[in-house]
Amino acid sequence: MSSALTAADILARLPHRHPFVMLDAVTELVPSHSGTALKNISISDPVFAGHFPGEPIYPGVLLIESAAQLCGLILAEVGADGSPRIGYLASVKKFRFVTLVRPGDQIRIEGLAGTHFGGMTDFTVKLTVNGKDVASGSLVIALPNG
C-alpha cells in the first residue's frame, strides 16, 4: 500500500540532519518496493556559495545522495527495538546527468527496488524536473544484518 511522508516524517525515519537532509517530501512510498520524493532547490542552500560563484548549479553528487536517501526510506522498516533500520550507500552505478539543476527547480525523484541479496538491494532511480530528465542511474543500499 502506498503512503506519503512529510518532512517531519522523513526526519523521524532518517538519521540525517541539517544540512544533509536532502528530501522535502515523499509523495508515494511502497515499503521495500518503490517511492517518489520531491526536492526543492533554493538559492539559500549554502552549497551555492561555492558551486559555483555567480553560476549556481546544484552538484550532481548531491543528486545521488538525494536519490540514496529516498532508497533508504523505501527500505526503512522499523527494527525490533522500534528504531528505523539505517541503510548505507554501497554502490553507485551508471549514473548519468543530462540536465543542469538550478535554484527554483523542483526535482521529482523516483526509486524502484530490484534484486535483493545478502542485506543489499539494488535500485533504479530517475530524477526529473517538470517532466524533463535530469539524472538516472543505479544505487545499491546495504542494510546491516538485513
Partner: peptide, 13 residues
Amino acid sequence: DSLDTLEIVSLVE
C-alpha cells in the same frame, strides 16, 4: 566481493 554477489544474483535472474 559481496557487492558482486548481488550483481551475480541479478545476472542469473
